[in-house]
Design a binder for these strands. Sequence first.
DNA 1: AATTATTACGTAATCATTTACCTAATTATT
DNA 2: AATAATTAGGTAAATGATTACGTAATAATT
Lengths: 315, 315
Amino acid sequence: MTDLMTQLGPLAVGSRLKRMSDAYMKAGTLFYEKAGVDFETRSFTLFYLLTQQSPLSVMECAEKLGISHPAVIALARDLETKGLIQSEKSDADARKRWLSISEKGRQAMPNLQKLWSVMEEASAQLIQSRRHNLLIALEEMENGLAEQDLFDRFQQVYKKKLIEEVEIIDYAPQYQGDFARLNYAWIEKFFKIEDPDRKALDAPEEHILDPGGYIFLARADGQIVGAAALINEGDGHYELAKMAVDEAYQGRQIGKKLCLYAIEQARNIGARELFLGSNTKLVPAIQLYKSVGFYQVENRNSPYARANIRMAIDL
Amino acid sequence: MTDLMTQLGPLAVGSRLKRMSDAYMKAGTLFYEKAGVDFETRSFTLFYLLTQQSPLSVMECAEKLGISHPAVIALARDLETKGLIQSEKSDADARKRWLSISEKGRQAMPNLQKLWSVMEEASAQLIQSRRHNLLIALEEMENGLAEQDLFDRFQQVYKKKLIEEVEIIDYAPQYQGDFARLNYAWIEKFFKIEDPDRKALDAPEEHILDPGGYIFLARADGQIVGAAALINEGDGHYELAKMAVDEAYQGRQIGKKLCLYAIEQARNIGARELFLGSNTKLVPAIQLYKSVGFYQVENRNSPYARANIRMAIDL
DNA sequence: AATTATTACGTAATCATTTACCTAATTATT
DNA sequence: AATAATTAGGTAAATGATTACGTAATAATT
């Protein structure tokens, strides 16, 4: 049992915390019982709060204790039947009920205080005799979680993992279908398929690779989810084209990865110029190109009707 | 809220642990949900256990996870309706049911594992970036509690506190009733009141103090719960007598405290000899006298019929 | 072989909370 | 002044676990 929990480490912290908490609650209850005091551990925080500050409304107690207001109502009911606290309707606000320590509660305090000081001492002894102090660790964790809650942290790491997981691979014939699918998708979404598109996508080997170009693909979860091509325009001029990312995988910086990979490849093959043609409608794409170092240059005539902006990058 | 909890320190550890545990559980559930996985945080440990070891019986799971077997049944039911695990009656033992990972569960594992590794990493990051490591603190606490559970620790400290709390005070006239009451009680319980008893108890000033003796009382919880007297036998000889402890307060080392106090007093006043008369029937009393340094000497004639043993101590 | 004790596990009852919802009172807005 | 929004706090239902108990199977003992 402990083996498993220890082995699970940070994954099972929740369960271990709960078990430790249960142990505390149970020991407290047992101790009150043994000492002949009719008092429940779970009522402790509310009762203690009211000894420090009376009166308080139900909602105020709930907020200060970090529990729901029905929980306060239940605890208050319990403490009230035991006579340790009392409650009365507020004069100023008929919705409100003021909870406060009763006379009997005040009389019970010295006795309870004695028990509390015992539990406090025993607990402190246990905690402080360790190298890592649970109390301080708890407080540090609470602070950490106040900065960013656990769910956010999960998501952040998740996103990072997803991004890291994407792999850029070189073209191979079996990927022609993916290459075509991904590009047809975005072109059809925003524009119209043009003749040069069809040629490049349906027969990439003939129209891109054989003339000295390159195609790269992004793989995630075992699927091809992104693509880009370097098209040889001769004389050391290359065009970055056919950039596409599966819609379901957008936001994972796949486009950026493809871009950077293509730029590096262009450098490796000693390209003199790398440019691209795009459309100002594609704001996020333009943004991406800028982020990796492309800048706008004068637009020249392009084989694509949709191209209204030309960008280049220094190699 | 945090203020109060922090202020309460070791007293509110239970509640704080619970809150932290809830935060973990909630974040986990949310994360699974967001990732589109139909899996509950609370089922995690059981599912994980079964991925490590299959098949296991219900009881084995309960024991390994440190939860009740009905809890395992509920979790297993949940996991089974989701198809992640399966169960079958044991052939060898018709009472037993074997739980094991199903094919679907095995297929779901890579996906789950991915999520787990994210949670693990995020959690580990949070924990390890603190000076006091919650995980290690938890483990140290678990070890500490395995040695001695919390309730025992409470009781131990409580007992120590109770013992410390007892106060030895000098006689004053208003305590005559207590002095008499405590002594009449034990004498009547084990023997018969004799004449010298009545004299000493009913008129201690005349029969003990005025002749140069002393009376000490033990006070706890604002009540007189024990008594002892030094009786001046003349010539530097003193008798330790009229030792009595309220039955309800026995076990708090009150007798020992009274004895030690009386011995010290005897030394202070330069007594030459300190002795006492008792009865071998009073085993715990004899034990006590021995523990503080009394040893048996030859029994001499005593004014008390019940005295069948005489003890003395070196001053 | 018969009886007793133990084990495995299922169900029911219980407990402590939380969420969801409701009502009534108060405050803000038009 | 009328209407809408917010707040206080109550109840009911749901959740998730535990304890208590029942039943049947198995093991141990006489």
